[in-house]
Structure formats: C-alpha cells, structure tokens
Write a protein that binds this DNA or RNA. Structure first.
Lengths: 138, 138
DNA sequence: TTTTCCAACTTGCTTATTGCAAGTATTATT
DNA sequence: AATAATACTTGCAATAAGCAAGTTGGAAAA
C-alpha cells in the first residue's frame, strides 16, 4: 500500500508530493543523487548549499522511510554506507529537470547547464532515460 | 512585514528555484492559481489543505515580489483584489504537472486526475498550452 | 597496541518559521 | 444603521532549521 504512515494534508497528488518533497532541502538531496550521482553522507555535505549534517541525516532518514532511497553498505567498500535511489526516486527526474529548466530561465544566468537543458527541451524522454541508465536503473 | 532579501544558496538553477518554491505552501498556492484558477484571497483559504491566512498573505507577497503573480483590483469588480499569474508563473505548469504525475503514481490512489495525467503523458506540450490559454496567457 | 583518522551520524542550544485564534480596516448588502 | 464580506494583521505557542561540538565504531599509521 502506498503512503501509509505519512500524514497527508489532502488527497491531491500535488499536495501529497509536497508532503514529502516540500521543503528547502529534500529536492536538493535528490538533485545530488540524481544529477550529481552522490552516494555518501560526506558527499552531500560538500554541495555548495552547505546543508547541516543533522538536517541531512533527517532528510536521508525520511527519504528512506518514503521508499525513495536505500541505505546500504557500499558493495565496493563494505565499511562505507552508500545511499542508492529506487524507482520512486528516479521517477522524480522529470520534476528535477523541469525545476532546473525553470530556474535556469528565470533565476540564473550563465549556469553551465545549457547543453542539458537544450537536449531536455528537444527530447525529454531521451535525457530522462540516459540519467536513469547512468544510475543503474535501465 | 520586513523587506526580504532573496538570498540564493548557490548558483545552481535547481537550488535557486527551490529558494523561491521550496516550502510546504508556495507550490500549492501556484497549483490553485494554475490548475484550479483561483484568484481571490478567500478562495485560497478554502482549499482542502487549509493554509493559514497569515501564511497565505506571506506567500502571496513573496510570489508577487518574485514576479510570479500580480496583485490587482479585479477588472470585473473594482473593489476586490485579484491575483493573476505572470509568464514566470505559467512557466511552472510543467513542474506542477510532473509533481501531479509523480504524486498520483506513488502517493495517491483514485485521485480523479487520470484523464489529465494520461493526456499529459501522451502530449505534454498540448496540455501545457491548453492550461496557459485557459489562464489568458496564450 | 596505542594513537590517530575518518565516516556517519547525534546532541545541545539558539534562531527562524509555522500554525492557530482572534482582531482590524475597508467596503458591500440588507 | 446594522450586518456581512474581503483582505488582511497581530500575538503567541509549537515546530523546524542552523550551528558548533561531540560521539561511535571501524581502519590505518606509529
């Protein structure tokens, strides 16, 4: 069953999505996972937005509880913890890319994502599929 | 309310977008404007998520400051205030529709948006253009 | 084997934001 | 003239975010 423990403000899908994603940091953590391919706790801390470690720990816990990411020991280094994304997580790629497009158009100049945005505007499905593949989620 | 400086945490377009949109309520107000065609203060208060009037006033102020909406006297009733969306606002239609799609797939069952979502998946540009038109932003 | 490192958090405390109830000011309507 | 509606404000308690420092547990260095 979907969405058991979360308190939903309403049954509107937009509202339900925002019950999980609607804050300053959650979608930024997902950007790091989906577009920057970050996997380790320490990696998230180095992003330019400088998330505090307690907030990061909290968001990773909530994302895991929501079934968007998995917390596991890294297969390549059994003593490190690696966070990996689920299909529920990769299904947010379009949301993140649309936010990127909007932010690049209206909030930022010279952001260095022109190529990606152009490609996404030309053929969104292809870009989404490529990112999905790069995350091992073909 | 004190004048607020829009502080960008970084130059990343996703981060900049979230500096404006990243909270529990802002995108819900925009959903009401873009998908439910709400225009008046009182109308936003009647949404099922029950935003508090002080939070609503604050978000409308911030959205106006960000250039996403306009606060005007209603042309049809010169003594009522009507909020209308700008192009910067309508450019968020894809973001909202992707959130709707994600929420409907992963968080909600039986949400009554199946037709819209199917149409959006088949031909996103058409759905976006239709909504834009319905808002008087052809 | 004791020390030092490092990674992944946790704790304590301060500040900022949210939520709720109630109130106010300015027009309509009866 | 009294009532109602609209668009907000205000005050205050509750919650969340931000910051610095501390903890845990395994690994590598001395």
């Amino acid at each position: 069953m979907l969405a058991q423990t979360l308190s939903h403000r309403s049954s509107c899908p937009v509202s339900c999505a925002l019950d999980i994603l609607g804050d300053k940091w959650t979608l930024l953590v997902l950007r790091d996972i989906l577009l920057k391919r970050k996997r380790y706790f320490r990696e998230f801390l180095t992003s330019p937005e400088k998330i505090a470690s307690n907030i990061l720990a909290d968001r990773l816990k909530k994302l895991e509880a929501a079934g968007m990411i998995l917390r596991r020991y890294d297969p390549n280094n059994g003593c490190k913890i690696a966070y990996t994304v689920t299909e529920k997580g990769t299904d947010l790629i379009p949301v993140i890319l649309e936010l990127l497009r909007w932010g690049a158009k209206h909030e930022v100049v010279n952001n260095g994502h022109d190529q990606l945005i152009k490609q996404f505007e030309r053929n969104p499905e292809e870009v989404i599929a490529e990112i999905r593949l790069s995350l091992g989620m073909g």
